[in-house]
């Protein structure tokens, strides 16, 4: 039994839900993200949020997977602050939905001033509505700088409790800093650009298993919706205890996400 706490099912087929269920997935959370193209209007985001809060939970429930979501305008579409603020205005109406866990995945992409301005607007939205936060950190050469800028922005904002914020896509050069500042951290298992299952297992061995989880971030690019069970398998092959494997792929996401009061793992297959 496992939880994939970061996966973009709008970009995946129903077959993937079935394969994840067969591999033991009981619950997922799907943050709002850049779908591979820029949406031309706030209405485009309204439609996307409807898919995240209505269509995907039904699709997941067919296979007994509890679907939850996080809402935002992602940093890749936040370079136009006027447009981004229009999208921010439609988020509160969706926060009433039972499967919405908070604001996410917010953060930075190229570490620009406009991205930072919209990140700060999201932090305020989260504070105003007492929401938890899921943070996206930049890719590749921009990650270390962006991770630090994001943590500084959250600290300077001053309202959000780090224990209610998860900073995602950490790697060897950012994980220690994130955990030391009191945040939760996520490792994304990607074939090329983030962590492999082997490196994620290494990081658990070097930095511990507290406040740290793994996710597939499966989406429309090179990614693997079965990456979490593959990492579980890697840890099992190394001889790690079942309790350790369960902690990083089930207990930790359950503990963090249960703070929302909305997270569930008990969906019966509807098909």
């Amino acid at each position: 039994m496992y939880i994939d706490p970061h996966v973009h099912m709008v970009s995946r087929t129903t077959d993937d839900y079935q394969r994840m269920a067969l591999a033991g997935c009981v619950a997922i959370t799907e943050p709002a993200f850049w779908a591979g193209y820029d949406r031309s209007s706030p209405q485009g985001f309204h439609d996307y949020f409807s898919v995240l809060t209505d269509t995907e939970p039904k699709r997941a429930a067919q296979y007994g997977i509890a679907h939850h979501t996080w809402l935002c305008i992602n940093p890749k579409e936040a370079e136009d602050p006027v447009f981004a603020r229009e999208v921010l205005e439609i988020i509160p109406e969706f926060l009433k939905c039972e499967s919405v866990l908070g604001i996410g995945e917010i953060g930075l992409n190229k570490n620009s001033r406009n991205e930072l301005e919209i990140l700060e607007a999201h932090l305020q939205l989260a504070a105003d509505h007492d929401q938890m936060v899921l943070v996206h950190t930049p890719h590749l050469e921009d990650k270390r700088k962006g991770t630090r800028l994001i943590m500084d922005a959250i600290k300077n904002h001053g309202v959000l409790d780090p224990n209610r914020v998860l900073i995602d896509h950490v790697e060897e050069h950012t994980v220690r800093d994130v955990l030391d500042r009191g945040y939760w951290a996520g490792m994304t298992l990607y074939p090329d650009t983030k962590c492999t299952p082997q490196r994620a297992a290494d990081i658990f061995e070097m930095h511990g298993t507290d406040r740290l989880w793994i996710n597939s971030a499966g989406d429309w690019g090179p990614s693997d919706p079965l990456a979490v069970p593959k990492c579980r398998d890697e840890m099992r092959r190394r001889g790690h205890l079942e309790a350790t494997i369960r902690k990083v792929s089930f207990d930790n996401p359950l503990e963090f996400l249960s703070q929302t009061g909305r997270f569930r793992i008990d969906v019966q297959p509807t098909r």
Binding site: R113, N114, L140, E141, K143, R144, R148, E171
Partner: peptide
């Protein structure tokens, strides 16, 4: 692994004026 990632990271600390593109190259230019 950490030091390879550090070597390929942008060492600057201030936000940039505007995002020149959406993607990343994988190394600091």
């Amino acid at each position: 692994a950490k030091r390879v990632l550090d070597l390929m990271s942008d060492p600057s600390t201030e936000p940039i004026a505007a995002a020149p593109m959406k993607g990343a190259t994988g190394a600091w230019d």
